[in-house]
Simulated scan of single mutants.
Amino acid sequence: MSLGKFLVRRILQGIFVIWGAITIMFGLRAVSPGDPASLMLAEGATQELIEQVRREEGLDQPIYVQYFDYLQGIVTGDFGYSWQSNREVEAMVIERIPATVELAVAATIVAVAIAIPLGVISATRRNQPSDYGATLFSLLGISTPNFWLGLMLILVLGVWTGVFPTGRRPVGLGEAAMTFAQTGSPGDLFTWLRYITLPALTLGTYFTALITRLTRSGMIDELGKPYVTASRAKGLPNVLVRYKHVLRNTMIPIITVLGLQMGTLMGGAVITETVFNWPGLGLRLIDALDTRDWPLMQGIILFIAVAFVVINIVVDALYSYLNPQVRE
């Protein structure tokens, strides 16, 4: 199968997944208890006013009519208005995207910086204390709930020692970078770094454990192949063989997992953002759930679904380019 046909098939599958997410969210709204018109108004609104809102919002129409109207709005870029703030949903989603992306990227950097060295050490020193330590770390990382780890980091590194702040960040990465470019002062960058450290460690812990185990298994598999023996027989240093050849061949599946996990991190940052009051999509989603703001919830879930699908398609395209056998 050609690369073009492969991408077309993956895009069609992605569109189907996005449509499924939209349909499920709309179905949940339809079966949820309560009158949406009442949620849009203040407590104590008259029945006449509630009926007027129902007519204006099309809530008095059959459910299938509401569904197709909602699909038409999404296709045309109209995601509706928040029931609580009366703001455009797309604007409320877009303004929170940078914070979520910053946290996901920072968590990925933390995971890679810790996991790959641990995986290499564990693979090259099998059945030694360092290998057991890396394995134990992976087990703890996968088993530890993110919310508990976040609270412990806040307690130890925030409250007891005061090394890192625990509240909402005062400046974003874009603002800090712009200030640095204009004034040459790195103060805002350091402030942003201090605020993102604990959330990135919390979100990246599970990811770190996964990449450590993947690196270890990949390295062990590569170390047993004939080209490694031939390279050592030629007198190449072990460090050169280990990092230039073995680790390089191991990185292909790791890069694939990194790309796929980026989508997972963006969707899975809800708990971490809530614990650290991080102003991203996850925290806004929790606020929307508390107020039953369905248009806002649908907009956030739709963005996460689209981001996940796009990341998966890009990773599949890169991987199929590097390894054409996956297209078969």
Rank of each mutant, 00 (worst) to 15 (best):
A230T: 15
Y195M: 05
F68M: 11
L71Q: 03
K234H: 11
L41K: 02
S217E: 09
Y64I: 15
G187M: 09
L7V: 14
R216M: 05
I196M: 12
F276S: 00
Q84E: 12
A177R: 11
I50A: 03
G218F: 00
L153M: 11
M262E: 02
I109N: 12
P237A: 13
V8N: 02
T144Y: 05
D60Q: 04
I300G: 04
F303Y: 12
G172E: 06
G267T: 02
P199T: 02
E51W: 06
E57Q: 15
H245S: 05
G174M: 13
T212S: 09
P145L: 10
S138L: 01
Y132H: 14
A107T: 00
V306H: 05
Y319F: 06
I121V: 14
E48K: 11
I116D: 00
F308C: 08
V65K: 13
E222K: 09
L173M: 10
A91V: 14
T256A: 09
V309Y: 00
V315I: 12
R125D: 04
K225I: 04
M40W: 08
Y70D: 02
N146W: 02
E328K: 13
D287N: 14
P324C: 08
P33H: 05
L281V: 08
L240I: 14
G299H: 06
P62T: 01
Q261N: 15
P33L: 04
G174K: 11
T229E: 14
I22K: 05
I97H: 07
P199I: 03
Q52K: 13
S2Q: 05
G150L: 01
L223H: 07
S320W: 12
D316G: 07
E90N: 15
T46M: 05
G162L: 07
I271M: 09
R126C: 03
L296Y: 00
I94R: 15
R168G: 08
F207R: 04
M251K: 01
F26C: 06
I63E: 07
G20I: 10
F26I: 10
Q298M: 12
E48M: 08
G4K: 14
N312S: 11
L240Q: 15
G267E: 01
M92D: 10
D293N: 08
V163K: 09
Q47T: 13
V159E: 11
G174R: 12
P165S: 06
V314S: 10
G77V: 09
W19M: 15
A113E: 06
A123W: 04
V326P: 11
Q66D: 10
V306M: 13
N312V: 03
G280Q: 03
E328W: 13
S82C: 05
T202A: 08
S143F: 04
T272V: 11
N249W: 00
I142E: 05
L265S: 00
L289H: 11
Q298S: 06
S122H: 07
Y195N: 06
A317K: 08
Y64R: 09
W148H: 07
P324Y: 09
